[in-house]
Structures are given as C-alpha cells and as structure tokens.
Nucleic acid binder design. Structure first.
Length: 190
DNA sequence: CTCTGGATTGAC
DNA sequence: TCAATCCAGAGG
C-alpha cells in the first residue's frame, strides 16, 4: 500500500526518519523504476535555507498546500530536485530525497544516467531524479496518484540513522537536518 | 529591466 | 577547482 497523506502529515523530521528504508517508485514513461530511500533532508518553516523562507511565491506555492504532493524544481539551470511536501496547509515544509539504493528498472536507470555504476545511479538528488525520469513537469503531482509514489519498506532503527548538516547550502549550516542510513554505500557525498 | 546566486554534477 | 546554464527573487 502506498504511503498516504496521513503519513506525510506527521511532523516533518519524523516523516524524514520514517522515509529511510521506504521505497520510492516511478512509473514515468510506462516503465517501473524504484529504489530504497537512503538519504533525505528536511526544509522547515522559518528555515533560512528553505525556498519558502521568503514567503509564498509562485515557485514554492505547492509547499503551502497539503502534504503528499511533489515539489520539483530546477537548480543550476540543469538539474531537477524532487521533494515531498509535508505539514498541513499553511505550514510550508518539505523533504528532499537525496539518495536511493537502486532496486527495480536498473537497466533503464543506467540508460537515463549514461552509466552502469550502481553507486552512481541514484546517489544524489539530481541523479535519482534523472534515473527515475522525474522533472519539473512533475511539480505539484499528487503522490498518491500512481505515477510517482512511496511504499513501506524495512524500518530503519534509530541507531542506524545518522544526522548531519545539509549539503550544498550556505545558510543555516549548523542545522542537523540531513538524515541517512549508516554504512550504506549509496549515500551521496561519501 | 538588470543583477545575483543557487537544496548539483561531472570534467579537469 | 570550476564551468555549465537558466531562472526565481530582489531591487531600480
């Protein structure tokens, strides 16, 4: 059963930790690709590093809506980043999916990524978006609609979850809002 | 309108 | 270490 709105309406950090070990599935292009979630980052209300820090705009509007929708944006003019919106309407929070362990559709992921190296398929936010065929056209997509969705997987115990500062941001450097599975070879940024 | 900088990646 | 490549947001 896909993860539903009830799941994503829990507190964002709690959702983030529970997402580790879950499966992200994409049916984009009519081909199934999936991976186990290894690494995520939280973007919270009143967070200087969040796109919602400046208040509601056209780009971040989806973050102000209900949980369980996709927030996909283009970064550096060429890379897509995939987030799932959390929080109730009016609370603009989201979780960036940063790394997956490839499971299904590895062949097509290799084609999309132009590499056969499994550790290089989904080990970074823009990499996994490319591997799963996710682009800005999927922004605002309902993640219970069957095209892109999450499934329960193995629960990762707290002692196998590590936190760290988020990657590649210049503000709020001290916040420990990145969560990843200890020891997984698929985490980005070794 | 112009300017600035970015939740990244891959080549050098 | 750095270019690619473009757009959102801010300021004039």
């Amino acid at each position: 059963m896909p993860l539903d709105k009830t799941f994503f309406t829990q507190p964002t950090i709690s959702v983030a930790k529970q997402l580790l070990g879950c499966i992200l599935i994409s049916m984009v292009g009519g081909i199934k690709t999936s991976g186990k979630i290894i690494e995520v980052e939280c973007y919270l209300q009143n967070d200087p590093a969040s796109h919602a820090y400046v208040g509601e705009t056209i780009r971040n509007r989806i973050m102000y809506g209900p949980a369980g929708f996709a927030y996909v944006y283009l970064i550096y003019g060429m890379h897509n980043c995939f987030n799932v919106v959390t929080g109730n309407p009016g609370l603009p929070e989201a979780i960036l999916i940063r790394a997956l362990e490839p499971l299904e559709g590895i062949r097509i992921m290799q084609e999309r990524r132009h590499t056969t190296d499994l550790k290089n398929l989904c080990g970074g936010p823009a990499k996994l978006a490319q591997a799963l065929g996710i682009t800005v056209e999927h922004n605002k997509l309902d993640l219970s609609g069957g095209l892109i969705f999450f499934e329960h997987g193995k629960v990762i115990p707290d002692n196998e979850i590590q936190s760290s500062p988020r990657i590649g941001i210049s503000k709020a450097k001290e916040d420990l809002l990145r969560f990843f599975v200890v020891g997984s070879p698929f985490v980005s940024h070794s």
